[in-house]
Design a protein around this nucleic acid. Structure first.
Lengths: 338, 338
DNA sequence: CGTTAGAACGAAAACGATTTCGATAGCGGT
DNA sequence: ACCGCTATCGAAATCGTTTTCGTTCTAACG
C-alpha cells in the first residue's frame, strides 16, 4: 500500500506538506498542492482510516443497534426499510455504518464498549429492548445517540407518530360511517400505550362508544393471537363493524378468521392494518392500512445524529414525530348510516 | 479514555507487559498477568480498535455490499434475511460488519478503495450489479471476497440452488399430476438462466412437453408484468394447469388476475411461487412456494469469508449451493389424472 | 537599508496499540 | 564455582496519519 511518506519522497516535499495538500489546506501554494494531489492519484494512494481516526478521534462511522429478538428486527420490513434509508442517507453524508453487537469482539462485551472500541462518532438505536441495562448505559454515555420509536428522557429520538396514526384511522372509519370499532393491539409497550390512548381519545372526540370487549390484546407479528381475538370479536352479541389490527401480518390472520366464519372482508366487516408493508397492495382484498414512513424515519435519524456529531454545541435533544398516511384499500366498507 | 500506558503506570510494569497480559500471552507470570487484567478491568479499560488495526493490519471487520437498486436490495426480505444471518454469524465469530458504499467517504469513491480504507479483512457481496466494473475490481483485488448468488470464475460464492429449486418444483407438480406447466420467469440474469435450464431439463426428464408459449418473461418483483403474463396464459387455447412464478410477490398478482377471470386458485388452476417470504403462509390460499434458505446462505457466506481470512493458505475457491425446500400450501391442486 | 509581515514549507510529537529482541535473574547440573 | 537454560519482563521501533510550531524566504514599506 502506498502511503503518505511514499508520496512525499516522490514529490520531494515533507510528509506534512503531503498531508496538507491531500486535506485541502491553504497554507501551501496552489501549484505544489495540485502537483501532490496529482501524483498521489497516479500512485493509487488510498488513505488509512485507522491511522487517521487514531489521530483525529473522528471515525465518520455511525454505529447502529438492531437486535433481532424473536425475528422482529432486521427481518421485519419496517426495520429493514429504516436501515436502508439510514444507510443511504449516512453514505450521502460521508458516513459509514457498522452494526454494534454485544458479542465479544476485541474483548468488548457491551454495546457501549463496542461502540467505543470501534470509535463510532454516534449510534442510532432501533429495535432493541429499551429496558436492557446495556442499552441504557449506551444512551447515558458520552457518545451521541438517537433512538427510534422510544424516547429516553432528555435524549433525542425519532418517533413514528402512532398518535396521529390511530387518530387518522379512527377519523377515517368515522367518516366511512363506522361507529362500532374494535381494536386489537400489541403487547404492552410505549408504542402500544400511545396507540391505545389515541384510539380512545379520538373515539371520544367523535362520540364513538368503545365497549371494553372491543379492545383486545394481541402481540405484534403473532398472527395467531390476532386470529383468536378476531374470533372472540365476531362471537360478540353486538360485534364491531370494523377491526383495527396491530400490524399487517396480524390483519391477514384476521382476514382468514373472518372468511372462515363465512363473512367477507370489506363487505360484512371491515378491517384496517398497520405498517403498510409492500405486499399490502398485492393481496386481495387490497389492505387498508396505515403506512409508516420508514424512509423518512431513517432520514431523520441520520440527520439528527449527524447534527449531534458535527454541531454538539447547537444541537438540542428533541423528539421528532414523523407521520405516515392512510392507504385506502378495499377492506373498509363505506356504511350508509350508523 | 484509559489506555494501556495508564494501566502500566498503575501496575508498575511496562507497556509491553500490559499488552501481553491483555492479549493472553504466556511469557509472563500468571500472577502479574491476572493482576494486570484485574486492574485494567477496574479502570474500565476499553481497547482502541484503530490503534490495534493500524499495527496489526487485522480489523476483524467484514464489509458487506448491498445496493438497493430499484428497491430489490435491503428492503427485499430475501436479502435482509441473509444480512441478518450474516450479521449474527459474523458476530458469533468475533467480527463486525460495516457496509461498503461507493459514495465519497474519506476521499474514497470506489468499493475497493472504500474497503481498503476501512481495512476490511474481507467483504461479502450480495445484491449488486455484478457487471459493475467497480464490483469486478473489488473481486479481483487482494481482498478476500465471497459473492452471493453469482459466481466469478475462480472465486468462491454462495448460491441459492436454483437448479434444485426448479427441479423440485417440477417434480412435485408432476407427482401431483400436472402435465401442463407454465413458467413465468424473471429478467435475464444468471439466476434466471439456471432456473430456466433446470425447468426445461426436469420437464424433459418427466416427459412433460413445454410449448413455447408456456414460458413467459416477467421481472422479479414487478407484479404487474407477471399479472399480464398470467392473463396471456389463461387466454391460451390450451392453457396450463399450473403456473410457476418468478417470486412470491409476482405470484400474488397472478392470483389476483386468475380470480378476476373467474377461476379460483388451487381448484381451477394451480400456482407456485418462489422465495418463501414469511407472509406466504398467512395469505389465502396459503401459497405453495419454494423457500430459499436465506439463513443458511448467510451462515455459509460468513463461514467461507472467515475461512479465507483466517486460513488463506488452505482455503480454496469453491461454489457452495444451498438448497431450499418446497413449502406446500393450498395453491396446487392434486390432479387425478393428466 | 533595515525592519517586518506573510507565504510556503518542514521537523517532530503525538495518537494507542503490538511485537521483536535483548536484558536480567534464578536455578539446576557438573 | 561456573555454565547454560528458562522464565519473566522492558526498551524501543513501528503502524500511517495529523497538527503544532518553527524556520526560511520574499516582498513591501518607511
Amino acid at each position: 500500500m502506498v502511503k503518505i511518506s511514499d508520496i512525499a519522497k516522490k514529490c520531494n516535499v515533507s510528509i506534512s506538506t503531503v498531508s496538507k495538500a491531500l486535506n485541502g489546506r491553504t497554507d501551501l501554494s496552489q501549484q505544489t498542492s495540485s502537483r501532490i494531489r496529482q501524483i498521489a492519484h497516479e500512485m493509487g494512494y488510498i488513505p488509512n482510516a485507522n491511522a487517521r481516526i487514531l489521530k483525529t478521534n473522528r471515525s465518520y462511522n455511525i454505529g447502529v443497534l438492531f437486535v433481532d429478538k424473536t425475528g422482529s428486527g432486521l427481518s421485519h420490513e419496517y426495520f429493514s426499510s429504516i436501515l436502508n434509508s439510514l444507510k443511504n442517507e449516512a453514505e450521502a453524508n460521508g458516513y459509514d455504518i457498522t452494526f454494534i453487537s454485544n458479542q465479544v469482539v476485541g474483548n468488548c462485551t457491551t454495546y457501549y464498549e463496542h461502540a467505543k472500541y470501534r470509535g463510532c462518532d454516534g449510534v442510532v438505536i432501533a429495535s432493541v429492548d429499551f429496558h436492557d441495562p446495556q442499552v441504557i448505559e449506551l444512551v447515558e454515555s458520552n457518545i451521541p445517540t438517537v433512538t427510534i420509536d422510544y424516547v429516553f428522557d432528555g435524549h433525542t429520538s425519532i418517533m413514528s407518530d402512532n398518535v396521529v396514526g390511530l387518530h387518522d384511522i379512527v377519523e377515517y372509519l368515522h367518516r366511512m360511517g363506522h361507529r362500532k370499532i374494535a381494536f386489537i393491539h400489541g403487547e404492552n409497550t410505549a408504542i402500544t400505550q400511545k396507540r391505545l390512548a389515541s384510539f380512545y381519545k379520538t373515539c371520544e372526540e367523535y362520540g364513538i362508544d368503545v365497549p371494553d370487549d372491543y379492545v383486545k390484546e394481541g402481540m405484534y407479528h403473532v398472527p395467531k393471537l390476532s386470529g383468536k381475538a378476531t374470533r372472540e370479536l365476531l362471537a360478540l352479541d353486538n360485534p364491531p363493524t370494523c377491526i383495527i389490527y396491530p400490524d399487517d401480518y396480524s390483519s391477514l390472520a384476521g382476514i382468514t378468521e373472518i372468511e372462515r366464519s363465512g363473512l367477507t372482508v370489506g363487505k360484512d366487516i371491515s378491517i384496517v392494518g398497520y405498517d403498510g408493508i409492500k405486499i399490502s397492495r398485492f393481496i386481495r382484498p387490497e389492505l387498508t392500512t396505515y403506512v409508516q414512513d420508514s424512509e423518512e424515519i431513517g432520514k431523520m435519524a441520520t440527520k439528527k445524529i449527524v447534527e449531534m456529531i458535527e454541531s454538539p454545541k447547537t444541537s438540542v435533544a428533541e423528539q421528532v414525530y414523523v407521520k405516515g398516511h392512510l392507504q385506502e384499500g378495499k377492506t373498509v366498507k363505506a356504511l350508509i348510516s350508523e
